[in-house]
Design a protein around this nucleic acid. Structure first.
Lengths: 139, 139
DNA sequence: GTCTATCTGCAAATGACTTGCATTCACTAA
DNA sequence: TTAGTGAATGCAAGTCATTTGCAGATAGAC
């Protein structure tokens, strides 16, 4: 179990190909939110034949396996993060584009309310709130 | 001042063209979240020469004027709603796609916390929470 | 080693917008 | 009321992230 996700792939009858290994390593090396294109660029530094379609397809199966989570950060592309690493939320400033991370516990009461009153099981790792940061608010 | 938004347009030196009037009327007739394409289809029933670019451009200026607000409902397109009508949030079920509306006040405490602790002025009309509704949760 | 369903690479397709530009037109000032 | 003009429209072409079809390659079971 050297490579993270190896087991998760095997459990689903999915193959651990060199391409997938490189993509998994690239993802593991990051703590932030990355786009498919960024992972593609990163892997290409080591393996120049990496294909962008393969990155997209790999991210898709990793998401289905629950290893990776999608987020919308308001730019026109999907961003991903390693599910286990990022249990937090995002404040996105519509003025300067800054992304502020929020602790998970801040939304715990809300999550409980949603479950109790609406029967809704919130995927709280996905919450993104738009607005203006202190600096941009004055403008 | 028969047409909503007429004043807001005039204040910005923007013209009230027939196309904009039709788009404004189409928007006013709706209480839900609509895409540019939907407004386009709706207006075309009355005026078959309506142009999709014009719809996009009009929605853009209406957003700048604050009359209309953008939301991300998780499908791959931008959705809009009439700002005054929709002071609420959305729970989106990732199982069945259902959109549940939430009352605005539910997030008021969170908004206050964000302002106090982070200096962040949350645009609370934009909040969307993904998860699973009661029906889809059992699966 | 063999076999086969799964993967990959490539190129082309998709789909939601966006843009350039020539033409048309809503408003303003005379 | 009517020019004049900057703004708006229509159309076609362009973007850009992402997806897909398909033929050839290959991981992993046996």
């Amino acid at each position: 179990m050297v490579i993270p996700g190896e087991q998760a792939l095997a459990e689903r009858g999915l193959r651990l190909t060199p391409q997938r290994m490189m993509i998994l390593e690239a993802i593991e090396a990051r703590d932030d939110h990355f786009s498919a294109e960024e992972i593609y660029a990163q892997v290409r530094q080591r393996y120049s034949h990496m294909n962008l379609s393969t990155v997209y397809r790999t991210l898709e199966i990793l998401e289905q396996a629950g290893l990776v989570t999608q987020t919308d950060l308001g730019d026109g592309r999907v961003r991903y993060h390693w599910t286990e690493k990022s249990r937090h939320h995002h404040l996105i400033c519509q003025g300067c584009g800054q992304v502020i991370d929020l602790e998970e516990c801040l939304l715990a009461p809300l999550k409980e309310t949603l479950r109790r009153d609406y029967g809704f099981s919130a995927n709280i790792a996905h919450v993104t709130i738009f607005g203006r940061c202190a600096k941009c608010h004055e403008v």
